[in-house]
Simulated assay, not measured.
Amino acid sequence: MTALTIRDVPDDQIQTLKVRAAQAGKSLQAYFLDLIARETSKPTMAEMVARLNRETTAGVSTEDVLAAIDEARTGR
């Protein structure tokens, strides 16, 4: 596992994070690990768009659809 160092964090932000970690009953390290896990488990908008494009791309052309409609109409 990789160690991570964050420099130049303002004191008021560190204090807020320490309070939130304590309220959650966690160490600051455990609190940060949970934040990172939560953030990385959510897809970004770009990732969602790419996924939607992959999953909604049809292998059927407009011509195929129109031909199927015409075929169904003639079969009535």
Rank of each mutant, 00 (worst) to 15 (best):
K18I: 03
G59E: 15
G59K: 14
D64K: 09
M1T: 04
D70L: 08
A3R: 02
L66Y: 15
A37R: 08
G59A: 14
L52A: 13
V49W: 12
P43G: 14
T40E: 15
D70A: 15
R54I: 01
A22R: 05
K18Q: 05
T62C: 06
T57F: 08
L28Y: 12
A50P: 01
T62K: 09
N53K: 15
D8N: 10
G25E: 10
V49T: 06
D11G: 01
I36S: 14
P10I: 01
S41K: 15
D12P: 02
R73W: 03
T44R: 12
R38N: 10
Q23C: 07
Y31Q: 05
M1Y: 05
D34V: 08
R54T: 09
V65I: 15
T2G: 01
A67T: 12
Q13H: 07
Q23P: 01
A24T: 13
T5P: 00
A50V: 05
Q13V: 07
G75R: 12
D70N: 13
E55K: 15
Y31W: 11
Q23M: 11
A46S: 12
D70R: 15
L28K: 10
S61K: 09
A58E: 07
S61A: 09
A46M: 09
S41I: 03
A21C: 06
Q23D: 12
M1K: 06
L28I: 08
L35T: 08
R76I: 05
L17Q: 03
A50R: 08
